[in-house]
Amino acid sequence: MTDRAEAPPRSQWAEVWHQFRRHRGAMFGAAVFVFIIAGVFLGPLIWTVDPQFLPRGRDFLNLRDTRPIYVALWDGAAKVSWAHPLGTDNLGRDTLARLMFGGRVSIAVGLAAMALTVGLGTGLGLIAGFYRRLDAPLMRLTDLFLALPLLPLILVASLLFREALAQRFGPEGGTFLLIVTLIGLTSWMQVARIVRGDVLALKEREFILAARSIGTTNARLITRHLLPNILSPVLVSAALGIATAIITESALSFLGFGFPPDFPTWGRLLNDGVARLSSYPERAVWPGILISLTVLSVNYLGDGLRDALDPRIRGR
């Protein structure tokens, strides 16, 4: 009787995926985040109402300040209207369409700012950890940025550069570039510290010393040996960076330093809803719920990635 053949061992990425699937919070976060992404990017293909459409004349009087699934009067009879499932604002614009459009802007800002934050932090952390002569200057620069009051700095920079960028790239494009740059330039410090610490520990390991002994160049050491081994904290920082960028953009828009008033984002919609919170509380609830769910789902994703990519706790 022959023994049954043992199953071949899983690859490293298959083991990471297996561990990630076992993390219930990460799977919940992934499902919610994918649902939100699909809603804001694919939803307009189904709900084709123009988020900037302004009704005129009698339509304006009938459509302004409607409640979700409101009861309207046609020919003297009350009927439920599904024309605007989440209601309209004080100018008669559809709330659902504006939420989807604003979600695309907020998530695009989060992804772009995260890419800048992670790229800058990873690059500076690698250089500081690998080159001893540059370690002290770069870390003192990091400490300087950490000591700055970031939100007031972002607000002042927004006031200084908004007009110049708006004239060159347009009001929306200039504001997008400004917000992404400001968030990226003020959020890279934690990533740089984490990467530097990992590089300092890795460059004394045996496989790095062996690679040096056969004449491997510094550039190849960084790209082929160090960078793949610090991928775990970088990916976790990327996931958490999306949440930080979305919250920062929402705070700027809420304070009136973000996109123009007629260009909806979740933060701008939240700001508009607070002004009439007592009469129409749902206008602040919808963007608030979406911001909270997005940030919560991304945080759960970061936790799952940390557990799946860290071999010390994998399998617990």
Rank of each mutant, 00 (worst) to 15 (best):
L63M: 13
N62Y: 10
W286M: 10
A245G: 03
G121H: 13
F161V: 15
P287Y: 05
M114R: 03
L151S: 06
G174D: 08
V16R: 06
G129M: 14
V195Y: 06
H18R: 15
G302I: 01
S81K: 07
L99Y: 04
R220L: 15
R98D: 02
G87S: 00
D59I: 13
L221R: 12
S11V: 01
L86H: 01
T142H: 00
S250N: 04
A219E: 11
F35W: 11
F33H: 12
L61Q: 01
T186L: 08
T142E: 00
S232L: 08
E249D: 04
A38N: 10
F41N: 11
S278P: 06
Y280W: 11
K203Y: 04
S11I: 04
W17S: 04
I247M: 13
A115E: 00
L54P: 05
K203E: 03
T88I: 00
L305T: 09
A192V: 00
L290E: 01
L252Q: 05
L165V: 01
L252F: 08
A210M: 06
L91S: 13
T117S: 00
R98P: 00
M1G: 04
A201L: 06
G302Q: 02
R316H: 15
L148F: 02
S81P: 05
Q12D: 13
G174R: 00
T248H: 09
G119C: 04
E282M: 15
R193A: 11
A157E: 10
P51I: 11
S292M: 14
L159K: 13
G258N: 06
L96Y: 06
S232M: 04
A308P: 05
G241L: 05
A14S: 15
R22H: 03
H225I: 08
A30I: 09
Q12C: 08
A14H: 14
N229D: 13
I222M: 14
F176C: 12
W17M: 07
I179T: 14
A77M: 08
G43T: 04
R132K: 03
I291C: 15
P137W: 03
V234L: 10
L138Y: 01
V191N: 09
R196S: 13
Q12K: 12
A83C: 03
S158M: 08
P51K: 09
F28T: 10
P152S: 14
S253N: 05
T265W: 02
Q167A: 15
W13R: 05
A275H: 15
F145L: 05
T48F: 08
V180R: 13
T48G: 09
L235F: 14
S237V: 05
W74L: 12
D3F: 11
T265Q: 01
R21E: 06
P85Y: 10
L54F: 03
G258P: 07
L126H: 05
A210T: 07
M139E: 04
L141W: 09
I291E: 12
G129P: 14
A30V: 12
G315N: 04
H23V: 00
L293H: 07
G129T: 14
L209G: 10
R220D: 14
L235Y: 08
Q52D: 09
G39K: 09
L270F: 12
G29A: 02
G273P: 06
G39Q: 11
A164M: 06
